[in-house]
């Protein structure tokens, strides 16, 4: 080997790499979402499939278009737009008119992500911004929940049904007799996903499975989901202990609404969550408190999206104040 025939590469150390990549992480998230997604497809049929396809296509399209307009290199290869599309679809009612889904997707990608500079610079979770935008803009369409199961053959319109949280808040809370609620919404149905709701949020069990997969693949740190779910449980236990007629039991809080999807897939979004271990704990606990405040006392039956978005805003502050003690410095 002589010096002439080689052209070496030089760079700063380290010269080895774990092989982790943004695309790999996004792929893992998609794999983790797949069981819950397929369950949603099975439960709600073609509308859910079409909705997901629309959201993903709209997200990728919006990303490609906006990046081209902003003269940035086409960054859709990292797969983050696909993940946003899937997450957005999963937290929408399956019967939502498709044009609304497209609006949500465009808002999520362009307004919540690209105007801030693209992946890595967005302060808020894009999918949640899209969802909240739709919730506020189309309040009626966003609560048209389809009853689980295939649509009746004779009617093009699907049967609508209430979600457990909405039913509790509007009909059952504070009643003397609440057994009817628990008959209408057996816990086991909620856990395994035989309930009305956003089509990707219904199966707590499959989302939990996906979440554990993410932890096993080290794509998610355990602190955020554990503290999120833990705080929700704790507050629910206290309230339930105070007045079990007025407040829903902890298990119902855990397994209904968007909590599982939110805790495992939205609150753990890397860009919009803290980077320190203690920060993730604070973040998770904060999300839990806000979720319960909105669920129990707020105007909406569900508060996961608002809770996470509010905590997103606090992330820079949390990062700053939960800095680990540097090796060799005193504790102060």
């Amino acid at each position: 080997m002589t010096e002439k025939n080689i052209n070496l590469a030089i760079s700063s150390s380290p010269h080895a790499h774990s092989g982790a990549s943004v695309r790999g992480i996004m792929l893992t998230v998609i794999i983790a979402l797949t069981p819950a997604l397929l369950w949603g497809f099975w439960l709600f049929g073609w509308p859910a499939v079409v909705l997901t396809a629309t959201c993903v296509a709209a997200c990728v399209g919006a990303e490609a278009l906006s990046r081209r307009l902003m003269k940035r290199n086409l960054g859709i290869g990292d797969g983050s737009a696909v993940v946003t599309g899937i997450l957005l679809a999963m937290c929408l009612p399956p019967s939502l008119p498709l044009f609304m889904a497209v609006i949500g997707a465009v808002v999520a990608i362009v307004l919540a992500k690209q105007v801030f500079g693209g992946l890595g610079y967005n302060p808020f979770n894009p999918a949640l911004v899209g969802r909240v935008f739709l919730t506020i803009s189309f309040p009626f369409a966003m609560i048209q929940w389809t009853a689980p199961g295939p649509p009746p053959a004779d009617d093009t319109h699907a049967v609508t049904a209430a979600t457990p949280l909405a039913a509790w808040e509007t009909e059952w809370s504070g009643q003397d007799e609440t057994a009817g609620f628990f008959e209408e919404f057996p816990l086991v149905d909620l856990f395994f996903g035989n309930q009305a709701g956003s089509f990707g949020e219904v199966s707590a069990f499959l989302l939990l499975l996906g979440g554990l997969f993410l932890i096993w693949r080290r794509c998610v740190h355990w602190q955020t989901p554990v503290f999120y779910l833990g705080t929700v449980t704790l507050i629910a236990i206290i309230l339930y202990g105070i007045d079990s007629q007025r407040y829903l039991s902890p298990a119902y809080h855990l397994f209904s609404g968007g909590l599982m999807l939110g805790a495992w897939f939205m609150a753990t979004d890397m860009v919009t969550s803290p980077v320190t271990s203690r920060g993730m704990m604070v973040f998770g606990a904060g999300c839990g408190v806000l979720t319960m405040v909105i669920r129990v006392w707020g105007g909406y039956p569900e508060g996961v999206s608002f809770a996470i978005l509010l905590m997103n805003a606090a992330v820079p502050l949390i990062n700053r104040y939960t800095r680990p003690r540097v090796f060799g410095t005193s504790k102060s």
Binding site: N7, L8, I10
Partner: peptide, 8 residues
Amino acid sequence: KRQATYNG
């Protein structure tokens, strides 16, 4: 002449 390729 460039004797090496820089990556950084």
